[in-house]
Design a protein around this nucleic acid. Structure first.
Lengths: 408, 408
DNA sequence: TATTTATTCGGTCTATTGACGAATTAAACT
DNA sequence: AGTTTAATTCGTCAATAGACCGAATAAATA
């Protein structure tokens, strides 16, 4: 165990670009020799040796053996070292708290979960700190070596301040400065992101939506929500409220009191909505949507009808998503949405609802999607902190209109 | 008039970055002296002189006078030269063809229009070539000096191939390879983009949506369409069909034949839909939506009711946009949507439909929006061709999942 | 021996720094 | 008032450091 890895010293832009492309190659092709790295990146062998030396001194890279069997001198092989830094992904759900640990190379080292402390607020934050501390210690590292943390939480997360603006399911979280408190407890920069957005990114990184630039994630569980990924970027919206489709004006009168309170769509397809409709249609006593599904499977016609209506409304929401953002793929997730029988019904309806056919898949990561997505963002943030060129990547802004623009 | 400007010779990445930031400063602050440029860009005076010299030799920059009145030596002032290159924006509408000319600094030099050749197809392309040729000659330049052309057209434009996939309003355009044909006629690279997307970009550049990162443009005229701008980027969708909200399942039964043919929403709020509803409600003989508005203004209750219903459905569509992408601003455009009386009705309805209030504005560029947006894209493409750093991808791609990822 | 890897050396390109002359205004002095 | 001096700013020159590459060379191995 070496000393904590220092931040890389300031280098010139061009060296930083070289470092960046070497890092990227190491990320995707390790273990790899310096000669191969030079071929892949287009840099010279000379530059490569310099960069690898610097990486080695920072603990970013380690040697892992050498080639054999080929003609010519054997080559030393290198890979990213776990010493380079670790990241934490945390999914703070209303029922379950999950924490996962990965290293800078994106290797998921461990994952653990337990029921969320139902006293909420500060207790939940304490619980996060405890669980994170244990997870790191159990895996030969320590909180002080964590370089980036991302927290998944339900509710609207302001993309500028990081504040949680609506968190109906976890009590007393909206009033806390979670970023500051958790950052202090854990000793690393913390970023908060909406759980559905992170579930989407999870599916994109390790799940059923890999290598896709335009995806929508439609989550249906106790509530309803949407994650949008367009042009290879997460769409957060101006206030972080993109994807809050509870208020989509579908499935009922959007002006009636219930719609305005809970959201028109969620009033119908949210868990309480499904149970209400089952009850009102004369269904027998149940206390979870899962039970309605079970009833339907054993032949309860009322349950089947209620679920069919839920699928119809979900299909309408999916059709709206397709019409508006034209994704290549829609992933259905959440405790209800991820059920294959349910997804099949939605997909069948979509055949008639939308003129352009879009593939429908069910979430492959399930409950893990959020925490995996949190890891992916934490990892990206760590990489950008080391090798970011954010100020360069943007397109040139156009000049504002001049006052004397010609017309004819 | 000098010789055609040669492309800049290949330079190193770091010099290219310097050139880029000098160009950007010139774009936004000209006329400006070399000393000020050095301060603004952070480069040294020495480097600045080298870059400005190179720009001058390429014809990108010209001297425009000198400072006076200040203490110290006078400074020479520089600005981008029109010799640096011109761009064309073209809006090929079903009724009107508009062409506009700008120089590399974003100065709009001229704009002209005439009725679209209603024979469509190849005739329209010939007409574009004629009008473009005339516009450039009338403004002391020539087609051969045009470096970038963007064409606005109704219909779905495939973002990868540039092919026009659905163009209901202009006959015989879908079967032509417009990019190749027009590029050959005009002698410059041509890019095609959906007219509503470009109208949105026009409002962002020179209209009512400046300095906003998340905007939606809701166009209501003969048809209905949407342009989305999120994270400072246009959302095109996987097939370029983002914003094709004709098929949004609002305002009627999305499964009925008419909805599946024309789109559920457009069947109601498109021009033919409005006229049909007015006729079915017993309204007197009219042949344009404008006339229905005029009737309503002089007290025709049926016309008022029909327009109110149109506004209600437009409000529902806007509410759906707000719920899904959370824009900071919605711009209403198109011959119907841009009417202030109509927009007021929509805005009033939105107060009740959406829990979060979003500003509504009407298009300030009107019919010019498309061509202005085309200019802005043409300009951005020219800038990127000169100073692009596209190979420096914005974010490092994460590694794909390894096979042996840990769990516990 | 042929081939591949890794290192060393020299050359080029770019950017920065500090010094300097040129040009101009402000202030001081006769 | 007119002239001289100081201060300030602009742009260039020369020297230097960082980074890259290519060629030559040494090392290792089938």
């Amino acid at each position: 165990m070496t000393l904590p890895v220092p931040l890389p010293p300031v280098t010139s832009v061009t060296r930083q670009l070289s470092r960046r492309s070497v890092f990227e190659a190491l990320l995707h092709r390790s273990p790899i020799s310096r000669a191969d790295l030079a071929k892949v990146t287009g840099l010279s062998k000379q530059t490569m040796s310099e960069v690898i030396d610097a990486f080695g001194q920072q603990g970013l890279v380690r040697q892992v053996g050498r080639t054999s069997g080929n003609v010519g001198r054997t080559a030393l092989l290198y890979e990213l070292s776990p010493e380079g830094g670790h990241v934490l992904g945390i999914d703070l759900g209303a029922r379950r708290l999950t924490v996962a640990l990965a290293d800078i190379a994106g290797r998921v080292l461990a994952e653990t979960d337990e029921p969320t402390d139902n006293r909420g607020g500060a207790w939940a934050l304490d619980q996060i700190a405890r669980l994170s501390d244990r997870l790191t210690r159990d895996n030969h590292t320590h909180l002080s070596r964590i370089r980036s943390i991302v927290l998944a939480t339900p509710g609207v997360v302001n993309p500028r301040s990081g504040a949680i603006e609506m968190s109906p399911n976890i009590t007393g979280l909206g009033h806390l400065n979670v970023v500051a408190l958790l950052g202090e407890k854990l000793g690393s920069p913390v970023v908060i992101e909406n759980d559905i957005n992170l579930a989407l990114l999870g599916e994109i990184w390790h799940g059923c939506a890999q290598n896709v630039a335009n995806v929508a994630f439609l989550a249906l569980g106790s509530g309803v929500g949407l994650g949008l990924y367009a042009n290879g970027q997460l769409v957060r919206g101006e206030n972080g409220a993109a994807g809050e489709i509870a208020y989509l004006p579908l499935g009922g009168d959007p002006l009636q009191a219930e719609s305005r309170l809970q959201g028109c769509l969620e009033y119908q397809v949210g868990a309480t909505g499904v149970l209400r409709r089952y009850r009102e249609a004369g269904g027998s006593e149940v206390d979870s949507v899962i039970q309605v599904f079970e009833r339907a499977q054993v032949g309860d016609p009322i349950a089947a009808q209620v679920i069919g209506e839920t699928a119809r409304l979900t299909g309408l929401a999916a059709a709206a998503v397709i019409a508006m953002v034209d994704p290549q793929l829609i992933v259905l997730g959440g405790s209800v949405g991820a059920r294959p029988d349910f997804a099949d019904q939605v997909a069948r309806l979509l055949l008639q609802l939308s003129p352009r056919q879009v593939e429908i898949r069910t979430s492959t990561l399930g409950r893990r999607a959020g925490v995996v997505g949190a890891l992916s963002v934490a990892l990206s943030r760590l990489h950008d902190a080391f090798f970011g060129v954010s100020e360069l990547a943007a397109s040139l802004p156009l000049p504002p209109p001049a006052h004397g623009s010609a017309r004819q």
